[in-house]
Amino acid sequence: MALLETKNLSISFGGLRAVDGFNIKIEQGQLYGLIGPNGAGKTTIFNLLTGVYRPSEGKIFLDGEDITGKKTIDINKAGVARTFQNIRLFKKLSVKDNVKVGLHNSYHYSTLCGIFRLPHYYKVEAQMNERAMELLKVFDLDGDAETTAENLPYGKQRKLEIARALATNPKLLLLDEPAAGMNPNETIELMNTIRFVRDKFQMTILLIEHDMKLVSGICEELTVLNFGKVLTQGKTGEVLNNPEVIKAYLGE
C-alpha cells in the first residue's frame, strides 16, 4: 500500500482550475519530486495535502487512511509535516524553542503543572530538551540552540524549518523549495542532509524544487505539473529527458 495516494484531487478558485485531477502514489521511504513551471499549482497541492485548502473534488489517503477535508492540525497529527516556500519560523523564539514547539504534541504536562513547576514539569522539559538537541545535532544546529531564530543565516533557517517539521514525528515530510535562495555549496550540503534524513528516520519525502541539479541528484521519481495538470510521471531520468517537459520549461 502506498504511503500517500491522491485520487483525482482538484480545486477551483472561482473560475480557475488550479489543480485538476491530480493523482500521485508515493511508497514508504521514497524521495519524490514535484516539479513544474511557476504557477503550475505545486504549492497549492501542498496546501491541499496539509488541509490549508479543502479540495473541490478528489480524495487524499495517508497510509490507507482518508484525510480529505481534515483540519491542518489533525493532518499533522495523522503524520504530515511541511516546510514553507517563504520561510515561516517562530522568529522571536530561540532555535531550540522552535523545535520544542514542534515537539508540542509528543510531550505532555498540564497548564497548572507548568505554572506551579511541579516535578513532572522538570522531567518532561528535560526530555524535550534532550530530544530537541538530538534533532538539532542532525542538522548541525546544536551550536546555535540559544540563538534567536531570526538571527540565523538563511541556509540554517531552512534547515531549522526541516528540523521543526521532523520534531512532529511525521510519516511524510513535504519540503516546499528547500534550496530556494541557496548557493551551490549550500545546495549540495542540503542534498546530503535530505538524503541523510530519509535514511536515518526512514522518512518519506515529497519535495517541490526548481533546482534541477538537486532534483536529478536525489529524487527517485518525479511528477511534472503544468497549468494544474499532470504532464508526466515516472523515473527521474526518463521524465527529465521527456520532450514535453523540456517544452513546458523552455518553450518551443
Binding site: 509535516a81 514553507f84 515561516r88 517562530f90 522568529k91 517539521a165 512532529t168
Partner: peptide
C-alpha cells in the same frame, strides 16, 4: 510569531 506555521506543527 507565525500562525500558519504553528498550525502546521499541530498547535
Amino acid at each position: 510569531d507565525n500562525l500558519i506555521a504553528a498550525e502546521s506543527v499541530g498547535i
